[in-house]
Lab assay of single mutants.
Amino acid sequence: MAEIKEKICDYLFNVSDSSALNLAKNIGLTKARDINAVLIDMERQGDVYRQGTTPPIWHLTDK
């Protein structure tokens, strides 16, 4: 899980924002549900936040 978090942070640092599906595909996974639990956990920790569009767009925080 730590490896996936690191990949998410690296990708969002370079791209600035992404949907869960696009993010999953760009870090080597196939479906948004493969990454949603990790994104929600990271959101609780304050590492990422989502804009409430459908589907949500994920961003890194300034943390």
Rank of each mutant, 00 (worst) to 15 (best):
Met1Phe: 14
Met1Gly: 09
Met1Leu: 08
Met1Asp: 07
Met1Trp: 13
Met1Thr: 13
Ala2Gly: 13
Ala2Trp: 10
Ala2Lys: 14
Ala2His: 10
Ala2Met: 13
Ala2Glu: 15
Glu3Ser: 10
Glu3Thr: 10
Ile4Gly: 05
Ile4Pro: 03
Ile4Trp: 02
Ile4His: 09
Lys5Gly: 03
Lys5Asn: 03
Lys5Val: 02
Lys5Thr: 03
Lys5Gln: 08
Glu6Asp: 04
Glu6Trp: 01
Glu6Phe: 01
Glu6Ser: 06
Lys7Val: 02
Lys7Asn: 04
Ile8Asp: 15
Ile8Glu: 07
Cys9Asp: 02
Cys9Trp: 12
Cys9Thr: 14
Cys9Ile: 15
Asp10Lys: 13
Asp10Ile: 04
Asp10Gly: 04
Tyr11Phe: 12
Tyr11Lys: 09
Tyr11Ala: 11
Tyr11Arg: 07
Leu12Ala: 05
Leu12Gly: 05
Leu12His: 05
Leu12Cys: 00
Leu12Thr: 00
Phe13Gly: 15
Phe13Met: 15
Phe13Thr: 15
Phe13Trp: 12
Asn14Tyr: 13
Asn14Ile: 09
Asn14Gln: 13
Asn14Lys: 15
Val15Cys: 07
Val15Trp: 10
Ser16Thr: 06
Ser16Glu: 10
Ser16Ala: 12
Ser16Val: 09
Ser16Cys: 09
Asp17Thr: 04
Ser18Asp: 05
Ser18Leu: 01
Ser18Gly: 05
Ser18Met: 02
Ala20Glu: 10
Ala20Met: 01
Ala20Thr: 08
Leu21Trp: 12
Leu21Ile: 12
Asn22Phe: 00
Asn22Thr: 11
Asn22Pro: 09
Asn22Lys: 06
Asn22Ser: 08
Asn22Glu: 14
Asn22Ile: 07
Leu23Gly: 06
Leu23Ala: 07
Ala24Glu: 05
Ala24Trp: 02
Ala24Leu: 04
Asn26Trp: 08
Asn26Asp: 04
Asn26Cys: 07
Asn26Ser: 11
Asn26Glu: 14
Asn26Pro: 03
Asn26Arg: 10
Ile27Asp: 08
Gly28Cys: 06
Gly28Met: 01
Gly28Leu: 00
Leu29Phe: 11
Thr30Cys: 13
Thr30Gly: 12
Thr30Tyr: 14
Thr30His: 09
Thr30Leu: 08
Thr30Phe: 09
Thr30Ser: 14
Thr30Asn: 14
Lys31Gln: 14
Lys31Asp: 15
Lys31His: 15
Lys31Thr: 13
Lys31Pro: 13
Lys31Gly: 12
Ala32Ile: 14
Arg33Leu: 12
Arg33Ala: 15
Arg33Lys: 13
Arg33Trp: 12
Asp34Val: 05
Asp34Met: 07
Asp34Ser: 06
Asp34Ala: 09
Ile35Phe: 02
Ile35Cys: 07
Asn36Val: 06
Asn36Gln: 10
Asn36Thr: 13
Asn36Tyr: 09
Asn36His: 14
Ala37Gln: 11
Ala37Phe: 06
Ala37Gly: 07
Ala37Asp: 11
Ala37Val: 01
Ala37Pro: 11
Val38Tyr: 00
Val38Asp: 09
Val38Pro: 09
Val38Lys: 06
Val38Thr: 11
Val38Cys: 14
Leu39Lys: 11
Leu39Trp: 00
Leu39Glu: 11
Ile40Lys: 12
Ile40Tyr: 13
Ile40Asp: 11
Ile40Trp: 06
Asp41Lys: 08
Asp41Trp: 00
Met42Lys: 08
Met42Val: 01
Met42Ala: 05
Glu43Tyr: 02
Glu43Ile: 00
Glu43Trp: 01
Glu43Gln: 05
Arg44Glu: 11
Arg44Lys: 13
Gln45Asn: 13
Gln45Arg: 07
Gln45Ser: 13
Gln45Val: 12
Gly46Met: 04
Gly46Asp: 04
Gly46Lys: 05
Gly46Ser: 03
Gly46Tyr: 00
Asp47Asn: 08
Asp47Pro: 01
Asp47Tyr: 12
Val48Phe: 00
Tyr49Met: 13
Tyr49Glu: 15
Tyr49Asp: 08
Tyr49Pro: 04
Arg50Leu: 02
Arg50Val: 06
Arg50Ser: 12
Arg50Trp: 02
Gln51Asp: 15
Gln51Thr: 15
Gln51Arg: 13
Gly52Trp: 04
Gly52Tyr: 01
Gly52Cys: 04
Gly52Ile: 01
Gly52Arg: 04
Gly52Lys: 07
Thr54Asn: 15
Thr54Ala: 12
Pro55Cys: 07
Pro55Tyr: 04
Pro55Asn: 13
Pro55Phe: 06
Pro55Leu: 03
Pro55Trp: 02
Pro56Cys: 04
Pro56Trp: 01
Pro56His: 00
Pro56Thr: 12
Pro56Met: 00
Ile57Asn: 07
Ile57Lys: 11
Ile57Met: 13
Ile57Ser: 09
Ile57Asp: 10
Trp58Gln: 10
Trp58Gly: 10
Trp58Met: 07
Trp58Leu: 05
Trp58His: 08
His59Ser: 15
His59Phe: 07
His59Leu: 03
His59Val: 08
His59Ile: 04
His59Gln: 10
His59Trp: 00
Leu60His: 03
Leu60Thr: 03
Thr61Cys: 08
Thr61Pro: 06
Thr61Tyr: 00
Asp62His: 07
Asp62Met: 06
Asp62Ala: 13
Asp62Cys: 10
Lys63Leu: 03
Lys63Ala: 12
Lys63Arg: 13
Lys63Val: 00
Lys63Asn: 08
